[in-house]
Each structure stands twice: as C-alpha cells, then as structure tokens.
C-alpha cells in the first residue's frame, strides 16, 4: 500500500520541526531565554530603550530561522546596508566635505539629486554646496552616488525607520536634513572609515587644510 506514505513522510518533517523547536528552547535556557541572545520573558513588559535593542544574529549555524522581535530586537546592520544618502561633515572643523562637484547628480539613475553651488559675493564658485536636495520619493537607494563620490562626502545612511504620514513637506531632504557628522559615519561604517582609501583621503584633506591655514596666518611655506 503506497497511498498516503508520501503524505505521512511529509508530515513527519513538520512534526520533527515542531518538536525540535520545543526541545531546543528547553535545552537552551528552559524556554526563559530567547534564541540568538534575545530578551528574557520579563522583557515582554519592558521594551528596551531606543538604541539599546538587542541585535540578533542568524547565520549558517542557526537551526532553521527564528523570529526577530522587531522593534525590541533587530537584525544586524551590515556596513554596506544602504537606505538613503546623507552628507558628511567633518567633526573637527564643521566643514562639509561636499565640494558640489555634481558627480553624484551625474551618476544618480533616477536623477533625484539637485544641488546648488555656493557662490562668493564676487560671484566666483566656492567648492561648497549652497543647498542640496534629495527627493526620497524618487531615490532608489542604489548607492551609486556614494560609490562614485571622489570626496567621501555623500554616504549611504542605514536608518530605515523613516515611516511618516506626510510626504510633500518632509520627503525632500534639504542640506540641513542630510548632514551627518563624520563621527556618526565612522560609527556606522567602521570598516570603510578605517580602510586605507578613506584614511589616505582624510590625511590628504587635512594636509591641504593645514596649508591653507598656514597661508591664511601668513606663514611662509
């Protein structure tokens, strides 16, 4: 009699999974602990503070998958994870890194970047953005702007919690909305920050600034 054997075998798979789940929970902390280092049962009544949520790692060794209890737990954010672009300013002197060279606007596939170059009172171009707009209703989070920015000025932010109830006033980010400090960037992108390219770039910029300062102070080179 072959009829039904396949069905039973299939059900055995689900049954096994069902039992294994409970056995595992029992083994790994008497069902008082959540898998992946997640919260205790008491946490049901006391959510973690903003920014202190547990990060739950699931990798090849995880048996099956388990639920990430967002918002109390989160998946790890990979460094390259990208949502919307931001502009970095340097913490030490508050300088915006962007020189309004327009390359990001030139590579932007849906053309969601607008930029106004700063002008000196004499009318010459100053290598700074006067204003900078990103329309996040058009942005496709592709990261090309950050990839091709020669000044490490535009970077992809990792904040995905952006839901709101209004778009016409809030979804076009201006310069002030886009600026983040270099410390913030260093924190979100530690590998890139300490990578050889960005270190060299920072050193180069620092040297240039120093020279300019020296010049301004009247020190002979």
């Amino acid at each position: 009699m072959t009829i039904g054997r396949g069905v039973i075998r299939g059900h055995a798979v689900t049954l096994r999974r069902f039992l294994v789940t409970f056995a595992r929970d029992f083994r790994d902390g008497l069902a008082l602990r959540r898998r992946g280092g997640g919260g205790l049962l008491v946490d049901l009544f006391r959510g973690p503070a903003r920014g202190e949520e547990r990060v739950v790692v699931q990798d090849a060794t995880t048996e099956g998958l388990f639920t990430v209890e967002y918002p109390d737990e989160r998946l790890p954010v990979y460094e390259r994870f990208r949502v919307l672009p931001v502009l970095v300013y340097d913490d030490e002197d508050g300088n915006v890194r962007c020189t309004s060279c327009n390359i990001c606007a030139k590579v932007c596939p849906p053309q969601c970047i607008w930029m106004v170059q700063a002008k000196s009172p004499k009318g010459t171009v100053v290598p700074l953005p006067e204003d900078f707009f990103i329309d996040m209703d058009v942005c496709m989070n592709c990261g090309l702007c950050a990839e091709y920015c020669p000044f490490d000025a535009i970077k992809m932010d990792q904040n995905f919690e952006l839901a709101n109830s209004e778009r016409h006033q809030t979804h076009v980010f201006g310069l002030q909305d886009l600026l983040v400090s270099s410390a913030y960037y260093a924190q979100t992108h530690p590998e890139a920050w300490s990578g050889p390219e960005e270190v060299a770039e920072r050193a180069k910029v620092a040297k240039k600034k120093d020279r300019r300062l020296q010049k301004a102070l009247g020190v002979e080179a």
Binding site: C139, F160, A163, S165, H171
Partner: peptide
C-alpha cells in the same frame, strides 16, 4: 494615504516600522 514607508524597497523591518506608525 495614512502612512508612507520610504525605501526602495523598504526592508521588512522598515515595513513593520510603518505598521507601528
């Protein structure tokens, strides 16, 4: 529209964020 969830595409966590909103 009651809630906008930005992102392209929003990750599942972002959608949950929108649901909470």
């Amino acid at each position: 529209v009651d809630v906008y969830v930005p992102g392209c595409p929003p990750t599942p966590q972002a959608l949950l964020n929108g649901l909470i909103a």
